[in-house]
């Protein structure tokens, strides 16, 4: 059984048909990426998975349980953490308070404290700035904080929405290296990216979304080599 199974998913924003019969599976331990251009429905898919957007049709099964109709806070408790697009850090709170809030759905105080120390080792910059307002961090640091905060929930599945958005190329490299490390530690990741090149390098499998529909799916390496993807998303050929 797959960790996440999505079948025939439809979603609307008013009259706009954002997702059309989207089928998608994520196996335990994988990094799966959703690539596609602006407005293709990548973020909408994540928003449905974390309960922020209610689908109009289809099924979502996570770890054997249906997620349809569940509120976002209930879905977090089942083990899905969402690092939303635009980072969404809590600007006037300190870095440490942001991390503590990431563990909001947990109640094991000792475990939370240990995880905060672990995050500060994994992201040394967060350790250095623990007492600083999160709003004063740079874009890349805020992205690390957003990822760290999502990990504080100890998710089985991490949803990452455009982690490379607006970051300098060098920082993007670092972020993707971190994504790979987190995955090697056992966290399954569903990664939404416009930077298809980087996403396909780090992911095991990929889906190509176009105007709300899945156009292709294959191993990340095969997708990166296919003419269609190279032309449309990698700007080669």
């Amino acid at each position: 059984m797959s960790l996440l199974e999505v079948r025939g998913l439809d979603a609307h924003y008013g009259a706009i048909h954002a997702l059309q019969r989207v089928d998608l599976t994520v196996e335990k331990g994988e990094i799966v990426t959703l690539i596609g251009s602006n407005g293709a429905g990548k973020s909408s898919t994540l928003r449905v998975l974390s309960g922020l957007l209610r689908p109009t049709a289809g099924t979502v099964t996570f770890d054997g349980r249906s997620l349809i109709g569940l509120a976002p806070h209930a879905i977090v408790r089942l083990g899905i953490a969402h690092a939303p697009e635009g980072r969404g850090i809590f600007g006037t709170l300190t870095v440490k308070e942001n991390l503590e809030l990431g563990a909001y759905s947990r109640s094991d105080r000792a475990g939370i404290r240990a995880d905060i120390s672990r995050m500060m080792v994994r992201f040394p910059i967060l350790g250095e700035r623990a007492g600083q307002s999160a709003g004063t961090l740079s874009g890349g640091e805020q992205q690390m904080l957003a990822v760290g905060r999502a990990l504080m929930a100890r998710p089985k599945l991490l949803l990452l929405d455009e982690p490379s958005l607006g970051l300098a190329p060098q920082i993007v490299q670092t972020i993707f290296a971190i994504i790979r490390e987190i995955n090697q530690e056992g966290v399954t990741i569903l990664l939404v990216e416009q930077n298809a090149h980087m996403a396909l390098r780090v992911a095991h499998r990929g889906y190509v979304l176009e105007t709300g529909e899945i156009k292709m799916t294959d191993d990340a390496r095969v997708l990166a080599a296919s003419d269609e993807v190279r032309k449309a998303y990698l700007g080669i050929g």
Binding site: S50, A81, P84, F90, L93
Partner: peptide, 19 residues
């Protein structure tokens, strides 16, 4: 802190599990 997280960013607050 849950109150404050709503003030700071309601969507992020929901995504970390705040009702």
């Amino acid at each position: 802190r849950a109150f404050l997280s709503i003030r700071e960013n309601e969507i992020a607050a929901e995504s970390i599990g705040v009702n």
